[in-house]
Design a protein around this nucleic acid. Structure first.
Lengths: 199, 199
DNA sequence: CGTCTATTTGAATGTACTCAAAAGCGGTGG
DNA sequence: CCACCGCTTTTGAGTACATTCAAATAGACG
């Protein structure tokens, strides 16, 4: 049922009683978004963290020249949102867009604070979520300042094989900070290189 | 005295009673490091978060080819450490090195957990610290995937004017993910451009 | 004062982007 | 279910951005 996946997700870090599960799930709001619809826009204060039950979404930044730059992707069992805006309650800089028809469970800030009181363990869970997001970003910074585009692409498909199958290259390129044309050339080069190795 | 700066730092986010200040300060360990000495190394589990009372430090990553890449700088009133390793208690990937003779106040993980119990407000403080670190990293990722080296350099000196005065260019270049030679050329170009504008 | 490291400069090279055009593919409506 | 339209991917040529290597100069530390 609808809450199976998110409860599993919680249980990777904390244990909940049946009653606590009940309380937690009743704080969630279920939402369907069609492809190309938005869960949030830059300029708004982000109200929700979104857990993906089904589908695929991205968060992205739009620069001064109107170019989009992908910050994060999320498929089933992932959380996505404009964390900075959500936490600071300041207007955000990210758009959250559905890349496929998607079902998400939304948790808003007031509910989260209520839950912290009723189920203190959840504080631990969301701290771990923030920690992991932080660590992921740190690794990505290290990657961008120390590796070439080709290395970063290989790292990406190795780290997120499910994304690689599901996302158009144009979005992976944007995530890596390169043009789609150049990613196409990188992929060709990798193909040629690997066929040479096999001979 | 020795704890003035850190208490001020705390008070930007939380209020402490005199007694609480006492408890907090007694959990800190004071440490002096000479230039080129280390507060932590990759491969070790990071035990401390370090608050800088005096001096200047950097954290950096060493890649497979032995090249260093600066992840963070810290001067007076800043915190520095290998947050990922500190939080997860897994071996870290960062070196923390003093760039000047420095005085730091160290807080270890067990003390931090004790403090959370004695002074729950501190939990809020460190959550904000982590949040801010997260937000800083997010902005840096956006910057690296969407801007040129010259733009990133201008952004850096604008955002951290104190660092720019104090750090050798070689370290700023490493932070920006470019070679020191290229940074030198960027600076020259900026000089030429700005002198043109003045005419 | 001498030595070591940081910075500048230049030439040659490599990496990544821009623009344009063609081919491929997928979703939508008829 | 097919055909069309629009978006994605590929390809190529030309250009711009950034690196490498080497050498000269400048600065800083012991």
């Amino acid at each position: 049922m609808e809450f199976n996946l998110i409860l599993q997700n919680l249980q990777r870090h904390i244990e909940l009683t049946d009653e606590e599960k009940e309380i937690f799930c009743s704080s969630l709001r279920s939402k369907k978004v069609k492809r190309h619809q938005f869960l949030g826009e830059a300029g708004e204060i982000s109200r929700y963290q979104n857990f993906v039950n089904k589908g695929c979404l991205r968060s992205y930044y739009v620069d001064e020249n109107g170019f989009e730059h992908n910050v994060q992707f999320a498929i089933e069992d992932w959380w996505i949102g404009d964390m900075a805006s959500f936490l600071t309650k300041k207007p955000g800089s990210l758009f959250i867009e559905a890349l496929e028809d998607s079902d998400v469970l939304q948790l808003d800030y007031p509910s989260m604070e209520e839950l912290y009181v009723k189920i203190p363990k959840l504080e631990r869970f969301f701290r771990i979520l923030l920690q992991n997001a932080f660590i992921t970003f740190e690794q990505r910074i290290i990657s961008t300042i120390s590796r070439s585009a080709e290395e970063r692409y290989l790292e990406f498909i190795n780290k997120y094989p499910l994304f690689e199958q599901r996302l158009p290259q144009i979005h992976i390129a944007s995530y890596l900070g390169i043009t789609p044309e150049f990613l196409s050339k990188i992929r060709k080069k990798i193909l040629v290189d690997s066929s040479k190795t096999l001979k």
